[in-house]
Design a protein around this nucleic acid. Structure first.
Lengths: 228, 228
DNA sequence: AAAATAGTGTAATAATTATGACGTTTGCAT
DNA sequence: ATGCAAACGTCATAATTATTACACTATTTT
């Protein structure tokens, strides 16, 4: 449908993604010469990666949006994650020992992906230090993020989760705004919204926090800290 | 106390750790020459890394055992992880944007650590491809592990967690052994042991599974699959 | 201005889970 | 064989949370 797009269009586009944006301007021409890649186009609903298949390449989403879903075998899907261009896909799994994808990736609109073979990624990392460092930082950040979230979800009671979350969101301030609605908070905690609100109001009654919709005031930091 | 230990003793020891074991025999001498490191000894109870401080080096535990703990500010500690030699420490955080340690690391016996500055790690990774690949695999595996665990913990009911876990552990077989005691399973799920056992026995009563201590038989795979 | 909508707080009831205790079995060390 | 410790299965009770409603506000749409 678009037979004559010059390749540079999309190869240049990869420098907008967090992984490659680190490559200095003056090295980018060399980088592109060393880069082995193919460009793939998908339409809405197309499946980019199937659950259980192996990743042998780095996928960089340069245009469009992709959602990753986990199928339970009775035909229902659970949405896992949403990904907008420009961003790399599933970097966490490319290099893991069992590099089968635990999710399916499906385009929610028309997408363009740049696909780079694993071997070429190794090569690029060794030659371009900034690329390697960005890659490491990217994966490491994912580890941090997951660890954080895991700690939150692992806390046993809603009280503990809430105390932990509020202290974290407060950033040391005693007054701040919640960034997400209660509904979403409840999902983040893996609990029901009414239960979450109830606990929140209990804590307000006890004088630990002040609550007015999204406005939160930390009234007793120590007590919150002793809660998890 | 041990003033004359030849340096090779501990630098050689690092090749036992999963990160460095990948370096081929014939490159190890070169590798050691390129390696900049210091050796640190700690006694039981010594704090190797303090919560909140920054990681600027790779720590490889070559002897002893370390536990990582999270302090809540009322003085209680929560054990996060246990680490035995030979193993690298907290590789996930070394390269992350905010590389402050979320935990404290404390020796539970006398320990020896090899400490390698971040810059030197970058250098080694670029020069020794196998080292880089091992490092990437190591972090990636951590991502996989955390993702898995997060999915497990995020399931709302014990039934769902148990169904998910059993199907995963079964590896497709209909008869298998649990690798860990129920106590540990309960901790993994973030639930109490009696509650876990109760649900397990309910599922047995319903004819979904067979349970005899650690011996598990999957009797109705479909029903389990429809549970999460 | 009226109506839809998203976000919020509340309550009663049912279901799930934690707690703390108890007796039993198993494997291991003596 | 004996004793011990770990792991197991069970139970009653208390606490926590889910579910399913309903009412209220602010914002946006019509």
């Amino acid at each position: 449908m678009d037979p004559m797009i010059p390749p540079t269009d999309h190869s240049r586009a990869i420098f907008q993604c967090p992984l490659c944006s680190s490559v200095p301007e003056e090295q980018r021409d060399d980088f592109l010469e060393d880069l082995h890649y193919s460009v793939r186009r998908y339409e809405q609903g197309d499946v980019v990666v199937t659950q259980g298949s192996r990743y042998e390449s780095l996928y960089i989403l340069v245009k469009g949006e992709i959602v990753t879903e986990m199928a339970d075998e009775k035909g229902d899907f659970m949405k896992v994650e949403q990904l907008r261009a420009p961003n790399p896909m599933a970097t966490g799994f490319l290099f893991s020992s069992d590099n089968r994808s635990p999710v399916s990736a499906i385009c929610s609109e028309s997408c363009v992906l740049v696909v780079i073979p694993k071997e070429n990624v190794y090569f690029l990392m060794r030659k371009y230090e900034e690329f390697m460092m960005a890659f490491l930082a990217y994966i490491s950040n994912k580890v941090s993020f997951l660890s954080e979230k895991l700690r939150l979800v692992s806390l046993r009671t809603i009280r503990a989760k809430l105390a932990y979350y509020l202290l974290k969101e407060s950033g040391g301030e005693c007054h701040f705004q919640l960034k997400i609605p209660k509904e979403e908070m409840a999902r983040l905690f893996s609990v029901s919204r009414p239960a979450l609100v109830k606990v929140m109001m209990e804590m307000a009654d006890e004088g630990l926090i002040g609550v007015d919709r999204r406005e939160i005031t930390i009234l007793n930091r120590k007590a919150l800290q002793s809660m998890f």
